[in-house]
Structures are given as structure tokens and as C-alpha cells.
Simulated scan of single mutants.
Amino acid sequence: MAKHALLSASSAERWLNCTPSARLTEKIPDTSSPYAAEGTLAHSIGELQLQLALKKITKRQFNSELKKIKENDMYYEGMLDEVEDYTNYVLEQYNEAVSKSKDAVIFLEEKLDYSTYVPEGFGTGDCIIIAAEELEIIDLKFGKGVEVSPINNSQLKMYALGAYDKYGFIYGIERIKITIAQVRLNNISSWAISADELLEWAENELKGKAQLAFKGGGDMVPGPWCAFCRVRQTCRARAEMNIETYENYNQDPRLLSIEEISEILGQADDIAKWAKELKDYALDEALKGTKYPGWKLVEGRSNRVIDDPDALVVVLTKEGYEEEKLYKPKALEGITNLEKLVGKKKFNELAAGLISKPPGKPTLVTLDDKRPELDSAEEDFF
């Protein structure tokens, strides 16, 4: 099993904001999700495609490795097309780099050490391109839940530190470009920072917090970074933050003001998510034998199921019921599943003119959301 850094770059947003969390979660098993496994497979495809394009492997080697990848349960047909958006971007950037400098270089799945600033810190950069005093870190993100921004991205800045420490002096790097390729959200975006600014951040902010986190010190600070924390269900600071939201408004006047409603709306999703995670955690622990005062484990409600559909059809048709009326009409798979089956690019070609996107249902979001504001007149919606 691969070794993981205590202060990993991927969890940097969490331990930089909540320094005790690294040690608190250290001995709790990290249950890998199917999304993580899918992402790992996508990275393997991306590396393989680039190795072939860069002539680091033969077509025969490519086909042999691709065959193994296709045998993975997480593989689906459209995955190749989706990852290709990342590999095409990488090749475009590399070709541009070569046009700027004959000494341009590219590294794939590069092992990076940033322990100068983070105790025992190391990781792997998906792609590094260096040319004309600029180093670009390109990171493939296969998730499609939340859009990831490259701006001040702690994970990628730490990888950039490792890359700069390894190649900065050799190539005289003065500028760092950080790129996120979140292919399934059509999000390929970049952000740049000078090498001096990166080193200043590392020395004045990263280093001190990393040392504190490594010792397990500091205050518990809940926030968006709690999402993947392995003690998020039982964290007292997070519980107090969510419960306090209601306590603060238990006062006269007896009706909430617009400002108070606005503040609660900002916390509502977090409160609901925290409550569900707490319930799920308590149920798992109860199944293991934990007793919670005032609560008991019982069998939940269930729906009836047909154990042998074919046998039931035989019985009913013998009684004179028409077989066609015993089955549901055929239903077409959803667009996402059809794209996986056919391949995203080919599906878009074949389905051209046959798919539309109706207006979405109005929803309240914060002002930093990228979508344009709608007219709030009720008759516009109904």
C-alpha cells in the first residue's frame, strides 16, 4: 500500500485552516470512495495517452496497458474521451513551450518533495512543463461535484514548491503557472504567481501552520474544509457552530429579520449535511454495538419485493392477464449513462438536434455564483 503524507497536499485546505485535524484523523481508516477509484483510473488513462503521444511507449505497449485498464470495473467507454480533454491541453501547452524554447521539458507523474516547508511533505504532480523561465503544474481533476479553482490553490502551490525546489535553480524559473483540468465540468483554468511570491507564502504562512499541524496544535476551526474530514461527524467545534446558529436567533423580536434569514440561508446546507452525517455515523456505531441513551436500534420500514418476476408472470398469464400489461414501458437511459455507453464526443455528434436544455428552476445562491441574476417577478417563472 502506498504511503501517504500526514500533511498531504490534497488535504492542505483542511489542515491549514484547522491545524489539529491532521493528528486527530491520523489513525482513522480512510475509506476509499468509488469516486476516488474512478479518478485514479482516469489518471492512469491520462498518463498512458500522454506517454504514447510523447513517444515514450510504443502503440503495442499502449494497447496492452489500455486492455488492462478496460478490465477495471470502474471503466466506461466515454472515459477515454473525457480524459482526452486533459491530454489535448497538455500537448497544446507542451508544443507551445517547445516553440518558445528548444530546452522545454515535460514530466509526467513526477514525485515531488516539499518537506523544506511541510514536515515529511511529498506528493505527485500529474504534469509539469518547463520552458522560458516558466514552470506550469497541470492537475487532472475527474470529480464533477464541485468546481475547483486554481486561484491560490494550496494543493497545487505545494506541488509547485516541490517542483521549484527540484528544478528551479537548474532552469532559472521565475514564474509559476497553476492549471486545473476538471474535464467533466469543462473547467480548464489557470492562475499564475511569481516564484518569489510563492516562496514568500511558503515561508510566512505555510511553514508555520504546517509545523503546528504536524504537532497537533492549534484551535479546531470548522468550515467548508470539513467536507472530507474523517472526524467531521464527531467534531465538537463543528457541532457547536451549527447548533449555535439557531441559538443566536432565539430572541425577540419573535420574527427573523431579512439579514438574519440571509445569514441562516448561508448555513442551511452545512447544517443539513452535518445532521445527516451525524445520523449516519450514529447508525454505523449502533450497528457495531454502541448504545445511545434514549435511542434504540430497530428494523426500519421496507417495501415489498418480487423474488421471482418470471415465475409471477407465468402465474398471472395463466389466469388470463395479458403479458404486455404486466410490464412497464421501456424507458431510455439518462444522458449521463448514454454518454458513458457511447462516448461523450460521439454521443454529442449522434444526438445533435435531439437534446435541449430547458430553463432551470429558480434557486437562491450567494452573490459570488457565476450565473446571471434573474428577474424576481413571480410571473416570469410560473
Score class of each variant (00 low, 15 high):
residue 166 K to M: 09
residue 84 E to K: 15
residue 8 S to E: 04
residue 39 G to F: 11
residue 215 K to G: 02
residue 76 Y to K: 01
residue 350 L to I: 07
residue 346 K to H: 10
residue 301 R to L: 14
residue 135 L to N: 03
residue 133 E to K: 14
residue 331 A to E: 13
residue 365 V to Q: 05
residue 3 K to S: 05
residue 328 K to A: 13
residue 60 R to P: 06
residue 376 S to L: 13
residue 225 W to I: 00
residue 61 Q to R: 07
residue 346 K to C: 10
residue 91 L to V: 05
residue 132 A to R: 10
residue 266 G to D: 11
residue 343 G to Q: 03
residue 253 P to S: 11
residue 115 S to Y: 08
residue 139 D to M: 05
residue 369 D to G: 04
residue 105 V to D: 06
residue 115 S to C: 04
residue 227 A to T: 13
residue 205 E to M: 14
residue 170 I to G: 01
residue 376 S to P: 07
residue 23 R to W: 04
residue 272 A to K: 14
residue 175 R to S: 14
residue 202 A to D: 02
residue 232 R to A: 07
residue 281 Y to A: 13
residue 104 A to Y: 04
residue 68 K to R: 11
residue 208 G to C: 04
residue 25 T to I: 09
residue 321 Y to S: 02
residue 127 C to D: 06
residue 75 Y to C: 03
residue 99 S to W: 01
residue 292 Y to R: 12
residue 208 G to K: 08
residue 201 W to F: 12
residue 52 L to A: 08
residue 265 L to V: 00
residue 25 T to E: 13
residue 98 V to H: 07
residue 294 G to E: 14
residue 382 F to C: 04
residue 161 L to T: 12
residue 252 D to G: 04
residue 159 Y to S: 01
residue 277 E to K: 02
residue 151 I to S: 07
residue 175 R to N: 04
residue 50 L to D: 03
residue 117 Y to I: 00
residue 285 E to D: 09
residue 91 L to A: 09
residue 144 K to W: 01
residue 271 I to H: 10
residue 250 N to R: 13
residue 268 A to R: 14
residue 26 E to I: 08
residue 316 L to W: 02
residue 35 Y to H: 10
residue 107 F to M: 10
residue 276 K to I: 15
residue 200 E to D: 14
residue 8 S to H: 04
residue 285 E to T: 08
residue 214 F to D: 08
residue 222 P to R: 05
residue 288 K to P: 00
residue 196 D to L: 10
residue 266 G to W: 12
residue 102 K to P: 00
residue 12 A to H: 02
residue 73 D to I: 15
residue 313 V to A: 05
residue 202 A to E: 03
residue 320 G to H: 07
residue 382 F to N: 01
residue 174 E to G: 10
residue 166 K to E: 09
residue 201 W to H: 08
residue 24 L to E: 12
residue 167 Y to R: 05
residue 1 M to W: 09
residue 49 Q to L: 10
residue 140 L to Y: 06
residue 51 Q to C: 10
residue 337 N to V: 08
residue 295 W to I: 09
residue 52 L to V: 04
residue 325 K to C: 00
residue 137 I to V: 05
residue 287 L to Q: 14
residue 330 K to V: 13
residue 125 G to Y: 02
residue 160 A to R: 00
residue 233 Q to F: 05
residue 153 N to E: 02
residue 33 S to R: 02
residue 61 Q to T: 04
residue 163 A to D: 01
residue 341 L to P: 01
residue 25 T to R: 15
